[in-house]
Design a protein around this nucleic acid. Sequence first.
DNA 1: TCCATGCGTTCCACTGAGCGGGACACTGCC
DNA 2: GGCAGTGTCCCGCTCAGTGGAACGCATGGA
Lengths: 278, 278
Amino acid sequence: MTATLPLTSDVLRTVSCVTTPKRPQPIPERGAGEGLKSVATALDVLECFAVDDELGVSDIARRLGIAKSTAHRLLTTLCSRGMTEKNPESGLYRLGMHLFELGQLAQARLRLRQLALPMLGELRAVTGHTVHLGVADGADVVHAERLDSPDSVRVMGTMGRRFPAHCTATGKVIAAFNPDFAEARRRAGFPPRTRMTIRTAADFDQALATTRRLGVGIVHGEAVIGMSSVAAPVRDLSGKAYAAISVAAPTLVLRPELERTSRLLISAARQLSRMAAG
Amino acid sequence: MTATLPLTSDVLRTVSCVTTPKRPQPIPERGAGEGLKSVATALDVLECFAVDDELGVSDIARRLGIAKSTAHRLLTTLCSRGMTEKNPESGLYRLGMHLFELGQLAQARLRLRQLALPMLGELRAVTGHTVHLGVADGADVVHAERLDSPDSVRVMGTMGRRFPAHCTATGKVIAAFNPDFAEARRRAGFPPRTRMTIRTAADFDQALATTRRLGVGIVHGEAVIGMSSVAAPVRDLSGKAYAAISVAAPTLVLRPELERTSRLLISAARQLSRMAAG
DNA sequence: TCCATGCGTTCCACTGAGCGGGACACTGCC
DNA sequence: GGCAGTGTCCCGCTCAGTGGAACGCATGGA
């Protein structure tokens, strides 16, 4: 059972917000986890594909420490439901389209996203930049929605991706107004992404203090060199942040507009907080 | 194991293209399915949420014909991995954010989508309308990508959704150039969506003949009243269609531009077919 | 107010389902 | 040709997953 926390509002559907025991990041941690063993192992198999695009039966068996026959059995079961697929060329397995279908359903039903969509569209229109909705999950932020800048040539595929809280504007601003979330990040550490990324708890705490003072989270090249973001927090009735909306653009473009963008974001996020709490 | 079919090209990652045994549409069909029983049941539980947003333990147990305790055990396991979540307000369960994460991964890795993205962007820019990439799956089309019209006010949530082949432009055009896919639809029947929807095999076959003659699939109000789409097929080396790209707009807007749009689509789809096959 | 009926959760004993080991065919490489 | 990989299949043991029953708690009607 996911530990039930004192979530005053339910707009954030992620129950497992901060206190999720562990979600394996680099290499799935086997056995750990409650409930049915075979089901848990099957989900571990899926998790393997979060790391690598395509994997073979033996590969997965080795990673999870299970018998080859077991891995094979799990994969055929997952395949029969479209959760994984077999690449006929390489003979390897990968994630299936049905997983995408179900995942889209999960996203489409996220209430916070439904509320945020019109405002995100407006923000994009006014700023002309890419906008995000990020929700806290564990020690990370998951991009629940992303509207690309109208003039962005290539559509990037970062939606649904998970980012450590210390290298994104959304992560910083949620951490600044949610001590539990910040603490989860401190425990998880500060993996570097670029040469600008925060690397120590001291720097992190200082960044959070700055964020609290400004009311917005800002990153310059801490996730991607040359890119900047600003984010404002979505908060529950107790004032605790559980999500954030952000605007992202090249640093050179965003820096001059920083103040105006911040004002827009704060106003939009405040409105969203009200709508979500009501 | 998903039956391996003679797929000449691998761009379509959906191995289970046409010959998928069955994917329960209205109510999950229990027990049927190879492999591990508990894993299969767990996936059935997920499938329940494709029908309803939120469900309780007893509800799911009743639907699947399993014991309440079993359903509860499955749900807690799924929850511990973020595949489902518990709504603390209602006490009911629903699909989880981690499912969204994994689903996004599956989509991002779809090779056909990667190839199509730039062309879809261009099509949207030139036509000013919403564009789709649909891939065949079973007797349906799954929208693997969707770029919204720049001037569309509200962003709709139809990406990742599954549509019966007989009421979409993409479905018609894939069926027209893929006899297996068309046959799968005939077997699955023709559920009505609007008063314009095709209802009989005879009408379906006639529509496919027209589609073959024009080279594009066209629907006027057959999925949504007042909306029209045109679609061109993406084909493998043998000429069999396995995906399609489409342009959608209000009927009144699209009708006058139908010929020009068709030409653009056919040219883009042809190019995409070459890139995917090469 | 009390009983009835629904819910979700927990426990427990039985048994059959899922486990690992091993055998097999196949491929590619030294 | 052997060797080291692979994916697939089979089989017997045993433990994991099953359903039933019991519990506490809501809700609602009599």
